[in-house]
């Protein structure tokens, strides 16, 4: 793609998200979402093979529908209540519609079906943008409207997302689809706690972005798209293979890694709010996700690609990929747990 055009597209991608962040009016927020969708479409379709085009079409249809629903809900609110402010969204019809539309935009459980298919058709860098940066603007809106949404709807959506995210990923062999289901499960955790501690939602969104970027960048470095090809990662870069297993376990939320922190705090907050059943169900469904993370770890670190040679190292050429972001973000994805006391202090401020 022409670098000038790419510059315009990327800056519009930023502009859309920032417009949505900065707006207090539904119309401007909707405009930001639309700019975001329009800007990423040619980036998604730049390979222009049938799968990329198909993924782009599906993404466009869902995002346009969700944005239209958001504007419709705010118009309904203006007709019934007379308010256009994002904070003033108060009519139950409008809040429920907005929640459903944002769920469609993010890919939460009852309306998540587009996310694995779309992510499967993209290359890894675009998939990284799609599953991190594109989640920010809807989440900014969701956090602002969260106090007026029916709480049982939120909890049902959150639990269903964690369940579907774990369950759907079990039978997959494609890494991008597995990452899509992992994204659904993580979003479910964020929505679960949305009404009780919005700061925890932000924290868990932040950590999700770090861990997912680390996973995507690793896959890009290894150039692997299915579980089979993960087996070659040991010969390509042993350090990366060992660390990636830890990153995947961090995505699963095992204790000494930073992925444990949001799950820990969310479970604690849920039990404190008198929702032990929801907390138990969420923790159980996290085990489903853990299964496929463990399978990835197994394929990556404990298996060797079938090879007739005894050599384990490939030809050593100069590595041309820039790996500084990968190393920084992997360290962040592994070692943030000791910061938990500081984070909890900051959250209670």
């Amino acid at each position: 793609m022409n670098p000038y055009v790419l510059t315009i597209l990327l800056s519009s991608l930023g502009l859309g998200t920032i417009l949505t962040f900065a707006s207090s009016h539904w119309l401007l927020a909707w405009m930001g979402l639309e700019i975001n969708t329009l800007a990423i479409i040619p980036i998604m379709a730049q390979q222009s093979h049938p799968r990329a085009i198909e993924a782009t079409t599906k993404y466009f249809l869902t995002q346009a529908t969700a944005a239209a629903m958001i504007l419709f809900a705010s118009t309904t609110n203006a007709w019934l209540v007379g308010e256009w402010e994002i904070h003033q969204l108060s009519h139950p019809l409008a809040t429920t519609t907005v929640m459903l539309a944002l769920a469609l935009k993010l890919g939460l459980a009852p309306v998540h079906f587009w996310l694995p298919e779309v992510l499967q058709g993209l290359e890894l860098t675009t998939g990284l943008i799609l599953s991190t940066w594109q989640k920010l603007a809807p989440f900014a809106l969701m956090i602002q409207v969260a106090p007026t949404i029916n709480s049982s709807l939120l909890i049902a959506m959150g639990l269903l997302s964690t369940l579907v995210g774990g369950w759907g990923g079990l039978n997959q062999t494609q890494l991008r689809k597995i990452l899509a289901y992992s994204s659904i499960a993580h979003l479910g955790w964020m929505v679960l706690i949305l009404q009780y501690a919005p700061s925890l939602t932000l924290l868990s969104l932040f950590l999700y972005i770090i861990m997912t970027s680390s996973a995507f960048l690793t896959l890009k470095t290894n150039n692997s798209l299915t579980i089979n090809t993960l087996a070659t990662s040991w010969t390509k870069s042993p350090t990366l293979a060992a660390l990636t297993a830890l990153v995947l376990l961090s995505l699963g939320g095992l204790p000494p890694l930073s992925g444990f922190m949001p799950k820990w705090l969310i479970l604690q907050e849920l039990t404190k709010q008198g929702l032990p059943l929801s907390a138990t169900l969420a923790a159980m469904t996290a085990l489903l996700s853990l299964y496929f993370y463990l399978r990835l770890c197994y394929a990556m670190t404990l298996t060797i690609y079938p090879n007739t040679l005894t050599a384990t190292a490939p030809w050593r050429l100069n590595f041309t990929l820039i790996t500084l972001p990968l190393s920084i973000i992997t360290i962040l994805a592994l070692g943030l747990l000791p910061l938990t006391p500081a984070v909890t202090t900051l959250l209670t401020l």
């Binding site: 379709a45 222009s48 093979h49 049938p50 085009i53 198909e54 782009t56 079409t57």
Partner: peptide, 10 residues
């Protein structure tokens, strides 16, 4: 435009 692209690829 996506319609055109889809008609080309599919």
């Amino acid at each position: 435009a996506l319609l055109v692209a889809t008609a080309r690829t599919h």
